[in-house]
Write a protein that binds this DNA or RNA. Structure first.
Lengths: 215, 215
DNA sequence: CGCCTAATTGAGAAGTATCAACAGAAGTGG
DNA sequence: CCACTTCTGTTGATACTTCTCAATTAGGCG
């Protein structure tokens, strides 16, 4: 990943200065592997990802990791934002983020009706996201992978050819599988002609068929 | 069905502390098996369960059911409260609920700072609940059942002897297992001396040991 | 008591995890 | 540029867990 990151590249959505978040204009940079915050930390900020990819995860007792979410450019995260963090957040690639002080956000939400609605709406989306992941975990391995690829295709804005920013371990920890099972699922989908892949470059050859698996 | 729907009643002279929900004092009754609302319905109300038990679930393509949550006396639910319902809600036993008009709640949340905080806090709790269920689905069968029993023990306020209001099918659909696997997990925990059980009356014989499984 | 449904148990099939080996890409240093 | 190391991803063999299908037992209710 080149370090020449276009900072403050206005996302497609023209930022209403009246947004409840009112993210700071100055972006903060994190290197790949660097930690934004850790489980148990006091929570001070909402984050908006300008560029790159971040994972939010919990460390489990058995030494494993449960990845709750991938965050990409444009995503807002850090909703566990009073008291302690429920998750750790780590940069998967080099990233730049903008932050918003939690307290100030809550003040704006309380003061302004539209701002309150916006925050509630964002929170509701967060609930739906978590619930969709719950549905994932009830499926078979190849279905989870299919669903994952479709989600990435949509969220990364790369309909046909995906360049996945995360490792097989990340995918496995997100889908509640082992890396071996994930790898086999990739192979299976490949042999079925539904995807093509040199490793992290995945081609979706038959999205409709993939979608059928996930329903 | 929402036949006798109580509309915005008492303005400020409520017997309870001023809550953002301000649930109507008049309770609505549903018989066991009756539906409060269905997936895809327009959402009009928040619900507060006065008595009984309710399940919130999604019907899946394969004819199965994914139970998102059990709701008991005192619980507030119906957070998928603008646009369409994400889940269906059905009474497991005879229940009585109090309702609150969504729009009115949002108005109060926008108007009053404490009310706004309360609604946000409740929504955040809802996120945490969903996330905890996600963690459930990553565990083994007997661990899920152990975790389930502890959750019920806590939420039903019955530390030692549980009287479960739901069927094995409900439990299975909540834990992402089959009824047979749930049954075997019960037997397994029974034989290990951790629980005792005539069917729906479960005794927790060793809560600390059960807790160890869930971590 | 007899019926009906819920719950349990058993045997075999399917799916995933685990352990181990191997292949490929990327980086390091000579 | 090449040999070496290292990390990531793939593949194989086997064990373990859960599902499926089938049979049996237990509970609830007339």
């Amino acid at each position: 990943m080149p370090a020449s990151v276009p900072l403050l590249s206005t996302p497609d959505r023209v930022e209403k200065s009246a947004s409840v978040f009112n993210f700071d204009n100055k972006a903060t940079i994190y290197q790949a592997g660097e930690r934004l915050f850790a489980e148990g930390d006091s929570a001070f900020y909402f984050y908006k990802l300008v560029h790159g990819a971040v994972i939010c995860f919990k460390s489990l007792a058995n030494g494993r990791r449960s990845i709750d979410s991938f965050r990409f450019a444009g995503d807002v995260f850090g909703f566990d934002c009073d008291g302690e963090r429920e998750f750790s957040a780590v940069a998967v690639s080099n990233v730049s983020v903008r932050v918003a002080d939690c307290h100030a956000v809550f003040l704006r939400a309380a003061a302004d009706r539209a701002a309150g609605q916006e925050l509630l709406g964002a929170t509701k989306q967060e609930i739906q996201r978590v619930q969709r992941r719950s549905m994932l975990l009830a499926m078979k391995a190849y279905e989870r992978v299919a669903s994952f690829l479709l989600e990435m295709s949509e969220r990364l804005g790369q309909p046909d050819i995906l360049e996945l920013p995360m490792s097989r371990r990340d995918i496995a920890d997100y889908l509640g599988l082992t890396i071996e099972t994930v790898s086999r699922a990739f192979t299976q989908l490949d042999k079925a002609g539904l995807i093509g892949r040199p490793s992290r470059h995945v081609a979706l050859r038959n999205s409709p068929a993939l979608k059928l698996m996930t329903e």
